[in-house]
Amino acid sequence: MNPVPDLSQRTRRYWMIDGLPELLIGSIFLFTGLAQLAPLVAPANIAGWANLLLPLVLLPLILLGRRILHALKMRITYPRTGYVAYHQPPRWQRALGGLAGIGVGIALANLTFNAQLAAAMMPALTGFTLAAGLGYLGAYLGMRRFYALAAFVAALGLLMYWMPIDGFLGASLVIAAAGVWMLIAGSVTLYHYLQHTQIEA
């Protein structure tokens, strides 16, 4: 009945219109999965070095991601369909979100290192944590394809849990698979966007 919340969701969804954010998030997921996988599959003499992959590859990607995305949008999106600046959430809200993220990270790490059972449960835990985040994103943006991805990672997490493989290997595969899904979805969206829009004179 009240059109403003729908309109808010519509304008928020505009951020995803070009598929570029999905490509960035997908890259982060894929690199995280592969970097976690590397020490597990690397020969013993270089496994120690493989541990460095995660901070070396991921940190720059996370730190520079926003700038790269902005630069790409400046060249691709803004000249085609326009520029929008969104309301920034208040500081306390951002701080609360950060604290919640750290809390989930610590809880997962605690489970991983302290409980024998948790290692085996890692794929399912990773799948459900990712699914919760993706489900929230889907509701926030009103985008059904995030619900589909959430269902996929939750199901894949459970599948990896039932399969007779190492828990960390399974969790890494879940994260990498979510990344591949997002890269494919982002590429299709970007292709479709470029096909249907042109730079305004």
């Binding site: 309109l7 519509r10 304008t11 369909t81 326009g82 309301h87 920034q88």
Partner: peptide, 17 residues
Amino acid sequence: VALLYTVESADFLFLQR
């Protein structure tokens, strides 16, 4: 006005589309 209410700012091209 309804569009601008939901964002901090938007450019002419976005509003036009």
